[in-house]
């Protein structure tokens, strides 16, 4: 088992689109490093005979008929929007 890599909290926070304060970054750095050191024990058991489990319950290919049905109106869908106009969600500018 390789030594657990040093987690770079500032980098991961950028990947997660989550701004952190400097204090949070430092605190999480220490706390999560400890959690990952603890998680190193996952390398101990022999898993060579084990398939990766995505679920505890075997369920495959659940399909339903592709039929139209009544759902929310545009107005209902917008009812929780923090910013809307003309029946549309307003987003922050993406392109110049």
């Amino acid at each position: 088992m390789p030594e657990p890599a040093e987690i770079d909290v500032a980098h991961v926070a950028r990947l997660a689109r989550l701004n952190l304060t400097e204090e949070e970054t430092t605190l999480f750095q220490t706390q999560l490093q400890r959690v990952l050191e603890y998680a190193a024990k996952l390398q101990e058991p022999d898993t060579s005979q084990v398939e990766t489990a995505a679920h505890a319950v075997p369920l495959f290919n659940v399909f339903r008929e592709d039929e139209p049905r009544a759902w929310f109106t545009a107005e209902e869908s917008l009812s929780n929007a923090p910013h809307q106009a003309n029946g549309l969600f307003v987003v922050t500018k993406v392109v110049e």
Binding site: L42, Q43, T47, V50, E51, T52, A53
Partner: peptide, 12 residues
């Protein structure tokens, strides 16, 4: 090393 490994241990 972490997520996939954890899913295998989950099966155990």
């Amino acid at each position: 090393a972490y997520y996939d490994r954890a899913q295998k241990v989950r099966e155990l």
